[in-house]
Deep mutational scan, measured.
Amino acid sequence: MDPFVVLVLCLSCLLLLSIWRQSSGRGKLPPGPTPLPVIGNILQIDIKDVSKSLTNLSKIYGPVFTLYFGLERMVVLHGYEVVKEALIDLGEEFSGRGHFPLAERANRGFGIVFSNGKRWKEIRRFSLMTLRNFGMGKRSIEDRVQEEARCLVEELRKTKASPCDPTFILGCAPCNVICSIIFQKRFDYKDQQFLNLMEKLNENIRIVSTPWIQICNNFPTIIDYFPGTHNKLLKNLAFMESDILEKVKEHQESMDINNPRDFIDCFLIKMEKEKQNQQSEFTIENLVITAADLLGAGTETTSTTLRYALLLLLKHPEVTAKVQEEIERVIGRNRSPCMQDRGHMPYTDAVVHEVQRYIDLIPTSLPHAVTCDVKFRNYLIPKGTTILTSLTSVLHDNKEFPNPEMFDPRHFLDEGGNFKKSNYFMPFSAGKRICVGEGLARMELFLFLTFILQNFNLKSLIDPKDLDTTPVVNGFASVPPFYQLCFIPV
């Protein structure tokens, strides 16, 4: 058959498939802009700032609406009420993970971030239990974070109060905490193996944040037939998995079943207990991918939040002064901060919360999916439909947070200066898919920041009023603009 005829037939089939998918069930789905064949609503979305586009569309179609990214149908949730109703009140029905062709290629359905069903539930339950087990290797997770915080302070001392970009050092600290939990080992910041790991993690975040990856996920045929950065992403992930597998083999040879040292040991012990169960989800494949998931999810998000926190503290020296006064009063100079201190430091706690609220790190979270046909607000959402959640619409709700575009710790303080919780605080998402490392991340943010401010004054290279804190939105995360500062020993 003539190649031209084959091409026309293929394009015609794709067009018909697109029209059929977009028209099927439209009477039951939430409203939304009319999609174009094949490309859907992509032309109506700013790929570099999806969150802003969703906010604009919500003003037209309401808090629940339908979009098509290519052939992929998505239902968008915008605003606290619908997000709570879906992710919390109907948590089980909305607990699936959205379709990610690239991740599915890399992870093969294993791990904790992109798995679904029984596998996801069992691996998540085990990971939560293990991360909360403060007795691994007779050292609590808090001990590990405190140790890394001391190392971080010593690295900052080496800058000798000269101007520096904190990106690298602030990236090393949370990565080392995860390494300590998974591998029972922290690395020197100049260790070549550690630097290679950091390089792969950072490069992957840069790649994932590009519009090209959005295109690959919406048109998965590209993955096999086109060159691009997605190939580098898959190569980096394969490198990390190979490295983790080597460490798993080392653990198998040296493990003491009665004295687990780290996450890998705990997983291997669980595998041993379930070795007679042919349906067990505790396999080497799941261990390797879960460890890679924890490394990827637990490094860049925390380091970016820390980097943004220091920029905001530079911009608002009056806030920094209040935090340091609270540190001096509650902790002093002669001991290290600990998590028990947080309950006695409402202002510092409010500042950490406000940093996370203000920066809105992951504006749309990772997409969910419905696990069955769901009736939601008089609409029928078919099983498997991807759910896109606007966390921006919750964290920047102007009824809950007056002047949401302003950095103001009073958003989390009552009139008496006591810490005030808010149900709208969802930087880790909400419901059954809430970030498994939430507790660890909150511990790291509090301890790293208090250790830094206990030991250093922060000095800006320019007038604080002239510092730009506008986030650089890159399609996946909101990151701070480049800046330098000086760490002046107190």
Rank of each mutant, 00 (worst) to 15 (best):
E300T: 13
V374N: 00
P163N: 08
P101N: 08
R97L: 04
G27T: 11
H368D: 02
A297F: 12
I381T: 00
N258L: 10
G79H: 02
E326D: 05
S336I: 12
H316N: 13
R124S: 05
S365E: 01
A321L: 13
M198T: 08
P63W: 00
R124N: 03
E104R: 13
G417F: 09
Y379P: 00
T34V: 11
I488V: 14
D463G: 08
K322M: 12
K399S: 14
R357D: 00
G296P: 02
G296V: 12
V330Y: 07
R377K: 13
E85R: 06
K121N: 12
A149D: 02
K138L: 12
N196R: 14
N258C: 09
D262F: 00
T450V: 08
Y61L: 00
L43T: 10
F456G: 02
R357M: 00
E155R: 06
D165G: 02
S53L: 00
S422F: 02
I123L: 13
P211G: 10
S140N: 12
G117E: 08
P211H: 09
T469Y: 09
L234A: 07
K160H: 11
G439C: 11
E285A: 12
C172I: 06
S254I: 07
F419P: 05
V5E: 06
C10R: 00
R144H: 10
I284C: 09
C435W: 00
L311G: 04
I60P: 04
F69E: 04
F428D: 02
F114P: 03
R73V: 06
L233D: 03
R206N: 14
P227H: 08
I39D: 02
T301R: 07
T389H: 04
A297P: 05
P63G: 09
N196C: 14
Y347T: 03
L310D: 00
T392Q: 07
T364V: 14
L54F: 12
V50G: 03
T34M: 07
L16M: 14
Q279E: 11
D373H: 07
I47M: 13
W120H: 10
P37Y: 02
K235R: 14
R73I: 05
Q454C: 00
Q356I: 10
L440Y: 04
N231F: 08
T299Y: 13
G417C: 07
P35T: 06
V64S: 03
F476S: 06
Y61C: 01
W20H: 08
K275D: 08
N231H: 14
F425G: 03
H316K: 07
C266G: 08
S127N: 05
H78Q: 07
N258E: 12
P31M: 05
Q193N: 12
I269K: 09
E285L: 06
F4S: 11
E104I: 09
F412K: 00
S390E: 00
L485Q: 02
E246H: 13
E285N: 11
P3C: 10
F183S: 06
N398M: 10
F134M: 15
T392N: 09
F239M: 14
A149L: 03
K421M: 15
H78S: 13
R73E: 06
H411W: 01
C175R: 03
H99K: 14
I223M: 13
R125S: 12
F487A: 05
K84R: 13
C164P: 01
S127M: 15
C179D: 00
S95L: 05
R73G: 06
V153T: 08
V153L: 08
R124P: 02
F94L: 04
L201S: 07
G79T: 05
F94Y: 04
P480D: 03
G98K: 11
L102T: 08
H316C: 05
L312P: 00
I88Q: 08
C151M: 12
Y424E: 03
T386M: 13
K185T: 09
K52Y: 07
I112N: 04
E92L: 08
L16A: 14
R333I: 13
V473S: 15
T304P: 05
R206C: 08
F482N: 14
Q214L: 10
L71D: 12
L36Q: 06
E328T: 09
G384E: 05
G332S: 07
P382Q: 05
G111V: 02
G117S: 07
I112E: 03
L395E: 03
E272G: 14
S422V: 03
E93Q: 15
K421Y: 10
S280C: 08
Y225M: 10
S180T: 10
V352N: 02
R132V: 10
D397P: 01
P35N: 06
P480K: 06
N218A: 15
T302C: 09
T348V: 08
F419N: 00
F100T: 13
Q340P: 06
V208D: 05
D360A: 13
S180K: 08
L447Q: 05
C151L: 10
V75E: 00
L128Q: 15
I284M: 14
P382S: 05
R433V: 03
T304F: 12
K247H: 04
Y483G: 04
F194R: 03
T305M: 04
S12P: 09
G384S: 06
Q484I: 06
D2F: 09
T385N: 03
S127H: 03
A173R: 00
D256G: 05
F4H: 01
Y61N: 02
M136I: 15
I381D: 00
C151Q: 11
L233P: 04
C372D: 10
P260A: 06
T130L: 09
N418C: 12
V177F: 04
E438Y: 10
V374H: 01
R139N: 14
E274W: 05
S422H: 05
K322Y: 07
F187V: 04
G40S: 02
C13E: 00
P101F: 09
R108N: 10
G475T: 10
M406Y: 10
H344S: 15
M426A: 04
H396W: 15
E142Q: 09
E281P: 14
G343I: 10
E438F: 06
P409M: 03
R186N: 04
E438Q: 08
G96F: 07
Y379I: 02
C175E: 01
I213T: 12
L395Y: 02
H316D: 05
L311Y: 05
H353W: 03
N217W: 09
D468S: 15
L67D: 01
K190A: 11
T302V: 13
A369N: 15
N107I: 07
I381P: 00
V352R: 01
Y347Q: 02
V472I: 14
Q279K: 14
F183I: 05
D188P: 09
A430T: 13
W212H: 08
A369E: 10
E148L: 00
I289V: 12
R442W: 02
F69G: 07
G117K: 06
I452P: 03
Y347S: 01
Y308C: 08
R186K: 07
K383W: 03
N133W: 10
L391D: 00
F194G: 05
C172T: 07
C338R: 09
S393W: 00
V355M: 09
A86V: 04
L287G: 04
G96T: 05
L234K: 09
I284Q: 08
K270N: 08
N455L: 01
L128V: 15
R333H: 11
I269T: 12
H353T: 06
N217I: 09
D265K: 02
P211F: 11
F219C: 11
T229V: 14
G137W: 10
G91L: 01
R157A: 11
K121A: 13
T299V: 12
L366I: 15
V394R: 02
K160P: 06
C338Y: 06
R108A: 08
R144C: 10
K235M: 11
C172S: 15
F487V: 04
D360V: 06
V83L: 14
C151K: 10
E241N: 11
C13F: 15
T283W: 02
L9H: 01
L237N: 03
L102Q: 04
L67A: 06
S242A: 15
L131H: 03
A291P: 00
L366W: 06
I181N: 02
K375V: 11
F282T: 02
H353A: 10
R21N: 11
L77R: 00
V177T: 05
P317A: 07
D397Y: 02
